[in-house]
Write a protein that binds this DNA or RNA. Structure first.
Length: 378
DNA sequence: GAGCCGTGGGG
DNA sequence: TCCCCAAGGCT
């Protein structure tokens, strides 16, 4: 390509990008979404700026997690731990309990470790490179905090942005390989002013207009720029590689109860699946139905009765658990502890374990009624 | 770099 | 019902 052509192409490309960003920001201003971690335009006009602690907390919670699922957890966390110092002062166990049900539990452990580092350091780093070194903060989250909390230019690329960009430019390279190309496009589009709003606007656009299925292209501020819209096939993007099919594992869970309704629990290893969370005793989860799901596999003796069967879908396998129940007398066996009935809802129980307990004792994991007890969060 | 790591909601 | 996938990070 001749130098003149390169220059023309570069100038045209930059002009299109600036215009694109401007129209996106105008759309963002007209369609502001109120979110618990977001500064409202009214607050912003009063001089309120984003709190790096709240931005960090929300971004970690939002990793692979929907906005709706995050809202109540975010409110509970900031009420319980209003700043990073408060979170750093909290026992990890309390953080795991507050995170229970949200998934990807290594996030909770990294969150606590990160809070400790930041509190000791005195404040959050304000550069992408420094943020990137903190536990649980990767390429996306470091860029998001840099842009949103500090309003500094950063290429914020999440699943929404990947979809928007892949449609804007009709990128046919499968997603896993196209990430570098997509990032280059975003870096070129990031405006010098309001980079934080630009990042949020791109993600809002992906969440509300440029959706995975049936995108609302007629409402899109970028429709005139969009290669996929012009070609009429936005739903064909992004191109993804076929996924591996999900294997089925089976096992048995044993819900042991004491006369007063307490349930026997134990803590899982810190690393791996549901790491550091609480569980009822279970057999190993095997790919074969080889008889391990019978009560003969109970980890301790008891009059085990079949209480039901549950299914739970994890990211990379499905699980079927046969649930047994028995009354146990005496002290908890080594490695276990009795959780009183009124404490069950506050334990660090992943959803799959709540399902197992519910199958044996309906209502056991539900939160106490407001009349009988006062809980800090729903 | 590909596999591991949760959960819930929408179409 | 089933499949998709969500404001990803770690190893």
């Amino acid at each position: 390509m001749a130098p003149a052509d390169q220059t023309r192409k570069a100038l045209t490309s930059k002009a299109i990008s600036d215009d694109t960003a401007s129209r996106l920001l105008a759309w963002y201003d007209a369609h502001h979404r109120e979110l618990p971690w977001r500064v409202t335009p009214r607050e912003h006009a009063r001089g309120v700026r984003p709190d790096p602690y709240r931005i960090w907390l929300s971004e970690v919670m939002l990793q692979q997690t929907t906005v709706e699922a995050v809202k109540s957890y975010f409110r509970a966390f900031v009420e319980k731990w209003p700043d990073v110092e408060a979170l750093a002062a909290a026992p990890t166990e309390d953080v795991m309990k507050a995170w229970a049900g949200l998934g990807y539990y290594s996030r909770a452990r990294n969150l606590k470790a990160c809070a400790d580092l930041v509190a000791a350091r005195g404040r959050f780093p304000d550069t992408e490179t420094e943020l990137r070194e903190l536990p649980g903060i990767g390429a996306y989250t470091s860029a998001a905090i840099t842009a949103i909390a500090f309003d500094r230019p950063a290429a914020v690329v999440d699943g929404n942005v990947e979809r928007v960009i892949s449609r804007l430019f009709s990128i046919t390279t499968p997603l896993s390989e196209a990430k570098t190309e997509i990032r280059a496009h975003v870096e070129r589009m990031v405006p010098a002013t309001r980079p934080g709003d630009f990042a949020q606007a791109m993600m809002d656009l992906g969440a509300t207009i440029c959706t995975p299925r049936r995108p609302r292209c007629m409402l899109c501020p970028l429709r005139e720029d969009c290669s996929a819209v012009i070609a009429g096939d936005p739903e064909n993007f992004p191109v993804r590689l076929p996924k591996a099919d999900k294997p089925l594992r089976r096992g048995a869970a044993f819900v042991a109860t004491r006369e007063d309704g307490a349930i026997l629990l134990r803590k899982r290893p810190e690393k791996g699946l549901l790491g550091g969370m609480t569980e009822v005793p279970t057999t190993a989860w095997t790919a074969r139905a080889d008889g391990a799901t019978t009560q003969a596999a109970a980890p301790f003796p008891g009059n085990w009765l079949r209480a039901g069967k549950i299914t739970h879908i994890f990211t990379h396998f499905a699980l079927e658990l046969e649930v047994f129940r028995a009354h146990i007398k005496g002290d908890a066996p080594a490695g276990y502890f009795w959780s009183p009935a009124h404490d069950i809802s506050g334990e660090a129980l992943p959803t799959v374990m709540k399902k197992a307990i519910e199958a044996a004792i309906p209502g056991a994991t539900k939160k106490p009624s407001p009349l009988s007890a006062k809980r800090p969060h729903d």
